[in-house]
Computed example of a mutant assay.
Amino acid sequence: MGNGPAGHVARSTVRPNSETAGGAPFRTFLHTDDGVRIDFVYDPGPLVHDASRPPSGDLVFVVAHGFTGDADRPHVRRVVDVLTRYGAVVTFSFRGHGASGGRSTVGDREVLDLAAAVRRARGLGHARVVTVGFSMGGSVVLRHAALYRPDGPASPDARTDAVVSVSAPARWYYRGTAPMRKLHWMVTRPAGRAVGRYGFRTRIHHRGWDPVPMSPVQAVPLIAPTPLLIVHGDRDGYFPLDHPRTLAEASGEHAELWLEPGMGHAENAAGDELLARIGDWARARGG
């Protein structure tokens, strides 16, 4: 869940092209395969060269925020600040969030938003893409990697080279904690959706899922051989530890699991040291 006052990233007049990687930051809009306009921010980061590691100039992180977040939220910008030490960073606002169009489907059609952002990141000249998702975004990066496999029929330029899923649920419709019961009220009730719209800048679709999308635990066995890192805090108030353990078990021991002592939920709880370790992991495996 994202919360707190939104910050601001100035909208630039710079337009993306294959020569901007490693150049100036810019902001623009993308269009998804189903026609939704998505707010997109690109931070090139430094071109770091280290003889002991792959060069970072071709590496880009595509960050997928949590429900009620957006590309301008301070906790999302902090993630960017750390990851730009390791490569370029793309952030975007999921549909129904922030300056993006459409309405949130709470993890279903959002996979198209991520695919559009990954596709644009590759169009900027980055050969290695690592998707990093938090909470709802953590479930989206798992489904995206399963649907956009290197050997699959989906657009090859929308695939990822490594996946980091932080604080993600393993299964849909979970109501076992008080925060998740509140979230379900926000999503399913007219009064809750009004709170989402005016209190959190999140416009939520009134229709339920039909059909129900592939769950995260169904997605993880399909991700191999793409490297997968599952990160979860042992004080997560939304999803207890059976969620990450179920995801790791379903991966068939393909995934790496980090259970973080003292960590709560998603971007707000991910400290700079953890984000730096994620950056190191990605540089070693994202290509």
Results as ranks from 00 to 15, higher is better:
G2H: 09
H8V: 15
A10T: 15
A10F: 07
R11M: 06
T13C: 03
R15T: 13
R15W: 15
P16G: 02
N17Y: 09
A21L: 08
G23N: 05
A24L: 13
P25Y: 11
R27A: 08
R27N: 06
L30H: 08
D33C: 02
P46L: 12
V48T: 09
S52I: 08
R53F: 13
S56T: 14
D58Q: 14
V62M: 10
G66T: 06
A71R: 15
P74H: 12
R77M: 05
V82H: 04
V89W: 06
H97T: 11
S100I: 15
S104P: 01
S104H: 04
G107N: 03
D108H: 13
R109H: 04
A121R: 06
R128E: 00
R128Y: 00
V132F: 03
V140S: 01
R143V: 08
A146E: 04
R159K: 05
T160P: 01
D161F: 06
A162V: 13
V164S: 02
Y173D: 13
Y173Q: 10
Y174W: 14
R175G: 03
G176Q: 07
T177C: 10
T177G: 03
A178H: 11
R181P: 01
L183I: 15
T188L: 14
P190H: 10
G192H: 08
R193H: 04
R197V: 07
Y198I: 14
F200P: 00
R201K: 15
T202W: 07
L222V: 07
A224D: 04
P227W: 10
G233L: 03
D234K: 09
Y238G: 00
E249A: 09
A250Y: 06
G252V: 14
E253Y: 09
E253Q: 12
A255I: 14
A255H: 03
E256P: 01
G262L: 11
G264N: 08
A269K: 12
I278C: 02
A284W: 15
R285Y: 10
R285L: 11
